[in-house]
């Protein structure tokens, strides 16, 4: 009996160790490749260089010369697309969360919630398809009317669709946070003759601010790491631009193009993908930890 007991416990512990190993493995594998990359290419060039053309590096590989791995345009593109996405997702997500938490009737909520959940569950490749087939032509037509020429693959297209993709995510976190504000506070405000919107703006949102901020941070982290939408709709060319109408490239797109379909592994080109991946990892890790810390601080205020 006691033996059996010990056996079960030991196997549970073993599983836990394995899970932990995996997390370590993820970091270690990406990190070691990154380090090997930085032994060939200077980290300074990578983080501050403004020219990104890893493909030429491939051709020069035989001669042992390294290509140009200035990742600034890549990060700039990531930043631009994420910014556009948040410009869509932050207002849409926040306002819908407020509407759902404060104004919506139970019947309306009952109907609209599953719709938003479906939206959150749609695979990103479907959003990518939608970006290419519907959003890009639509934006281009809209741009033409305004006299703007929008590239068929553009930061705007990818960012808009990604924003819509992140919206339900931001919304559901914000709604939780808003609903967590004690009801007595909003009733107190309403009983003084404040309108609902004044109550939301002056009492609920200030109280829920840390939670809302962390919802936005998590949204950003989702956007930074999102792949399929940008692969299909943002483009490949690494341009140093902040013009949302042009095609840009992002870290995830570059990782994909550098690694997919490439059987050979041991080159600066593939290792550059790992360096990008590692940067991505650090970025999202930072955003997530920040979000968690903010939320924890905020919980303490009410417990």
């Amino acid at each position: 009996m006691a033996k059996c007991e010990r056996l079960i416990r030991a196997s549970l512990l073993a599983c836990t160790m394995l899970s932990v190993m995996i997390t370590v493995l993820v970091v270690a594998s990406v990190f070691s490749e990154t380090m090997r990359f930085f032994s060939n290419v200077s980290a300074f060039d990578f983080f501050f260089g403004t020219e990104w053309s890893p493909q030429t590096a491939m051709r020069a590989d035989q001669a042992g010369g390294s290509g140009t791995f200035g990742a600034v345009p890549v990060f700039l593109g990531t930043f631009l697309v994420t910014l556009i996405a948040m410009a869509v997702a932050a207002p849409l997500g926040l306002f819908s969360a407020i509407y759902l938490a404060v104004y919506a009737s139970p019947r309306f909520r009952l109907w609209i919630k599953p719709v938003l959940e479906i939206l959150a569950g749609v695979p990103s490749v479907v959003y990518g398809y939608f970006a290419v087939i519907t959003m890009a032509p639509m934006l281009r037509a809209g741009g033409e009317m305004l006299g703007l020429s929008i590239a068929s693959e553009s930061a705007l297209t990818a960012g808009t669709v990604m924003g819509i993709m992140i919206t339900p995510y931001v919304m559901s976190i914000s709604e939780d946070v808003i609903s967590a504000v004690p009801k007595s506070l909003s009733l107190g405000s309403l009983a003084m003759g404040a309108t609902q919107s004044e109550t939301v703006k002056k009492v609920i949102l200030p109280a829920a601010l840390p939670g809302v901020v962390s919802a936005l941070l998590l949204g950003i982290s989702r956007g930074v790491g999102e792949t399929m939408v940008v692969v299909m709709a943002a483009g490949m060319a690494a341009k140093l631009t902040v013009n949302p109408l042009e095609s840009v490239t992002t870290a995830t797109v570059q990782i994909m193009t550098l690694l997919v379909g490439d059987h050979e592994f041991d080159s600066d080109k593939t290792r550059a993908a790992f360096a990008l991946g590692f940067s991505l990892f650090i970025m999202t890790l930072f955003l997530n930890i920040l979000a968690v810390i903010i939320v924890k601080k905020y919980r303490e205020r009410y417990d």
């Binding site: 004690p182 007595s184 506070l185 107190g188 405000s189 009492v203 109280a207 205020r301």
Partner: peptide, 8 residues
């Protein structure tokens, strides 16, 4: 109200 509910 029954329970004091000052705004934060």
């Amino acid at each position: 109200f029954q329970k004091p509910n000052p705004f934060p």
